[in-house]
């Protein structure tokens, strides 16, 4: 009895720093921002109660809708592409060849540095009007390539590409998943006459669904919160074509001094992300296969 209590005390002792962080830094700010959403707050003078007026003006704010559309487009395009790409690379790296460990590290590096401002600036230079990418296009005979980052038609896809390039953390998870699939399943499939493609779709993919699900949920949440790329590379432009939701929220709060409005936006985002994640969880029982469950589907 005493021992059990001592043990749990020790556990709380170790948890303590993290708990403080959660309570003070995360939960505290979170509750405060809920309060701020119902106030007029300009960051400088103290907040005054405003009821639901912030939420009301959201609905007549054209940029709110624009930023929502831009972000949804980004989520819908970037998340699946990133999943597919990271799975592909993981499959390639799941082979017994010499020096495979080095390759894995090399492929992971972009994700370590990918969210940094430095990489964003590099990306901006590669895909600018006279950037490296256009120099290559011109050298192979394309006379007037688009100006990518400063063309409202293409700018967002340049940012999507940057996101796909940072496939590393998903790749690691897929790689771990691939290693867990027992060889016996492939052997059994081969005996039943399945070729490589069949094996992939009927063994590999179902066995990986828990990892796909995890990456899908995390990827979706992260994609909704995209900020740095739009802030550094395109400043939300041209013509607001990369005005991501969080970027607009930042502008309202820190540039236009409408912190109450920005807080209201963050709550709306929380609800939207919650709905998306909830929807994914609801569908999960139809397609996610956990090993050890009876009958799979």
């Amino acid at each position: 009895m005493m021992r059990a209590m001592r043990q749990s005390l020790a556990a709380y002792g170790f948890l303590f720093p993290w708990l403080i962080g959660l309570l003070v830094l995360t939960l505290g700010s979170f509750m405060f921002s809920i309060y701020l959403a119902f106030t007029n707050y300009d960051l400088i003078s103290s907040p005054t109660w405003a009821g639901v007026s912030n939420f009301k003006s959201l609905f007549s704010d054209h940029l709110f809708y624009t930023s929502l559309k831009v972000t949804l487009l980004y989520v819908v395009v970037s998340v699946p592409l990133r999943l597919i790409f990271s799975l592909l690379v993981a499959a390639l790296l799941n082979q017994e060849i010499a020096g495979i460990g080095i390759y894995r590290v090399i492929f992971y590096i972009p994700s370590l540095i990918g969210t940094s401002v430095g990489v964003a600036i590099m990306w901006q230079n590669i895909f600018s009007r006279n950037g490296l990418f256009n120099l290559i296009l011109q050298s192979i005979g394309m006379a007037h390539p688009p100006a990518w980052v400063s063309d409202p038609q293409y700018a967002i896809y340049v940012l999507v590409l940057l996101s796909i390039w940072q496939f590393g953390s998903e790749m690691i998870i897929f790689l771990a998943g691939l290693k867990q699939i027992p060889d016996s399943l492939y052997e059994a499939a081969a005996i039943d006459g399945a070729n490589r493609l069949n094996q992939f779709f009927h063994v590999t993919l179902p066995m990986l669904t828990p990892m796909i699900f995890f990456n899908l949920v995390m990827g979706t949440i992260n994609a909704f919160m995209v900020f740095t790329q739009g802030f550094v590379i395109t400043h939300g432009g041209p013509i607001n074509s990369t005005m991501f939701y969080v970027l607009y929220l930042y502008k309202q709060g820190f540039e236009y001094f409408h912190m109450g409005y920005a807080a209201a936006m963050s709550i709306v985002l929380l609800v939207i992300v919650g709905v998306f994640a909830g929807f994914l969880f609801l569908t999960s029982k139809f397609w996610v296969h956990y090993e050890g469950e009876e009958g799979g589907k």
Binding site: S128, P146, A147, V149, S150, D151, G237, P238, I239
Partner: peptide, 8 residues
């Protein structure tokens, strides 16, 4: 236009 847009 895209040249002008690149001059923030």
């Amino acid at each position: 236009a895209e040249y002008t847009a690149s001059l923030t």
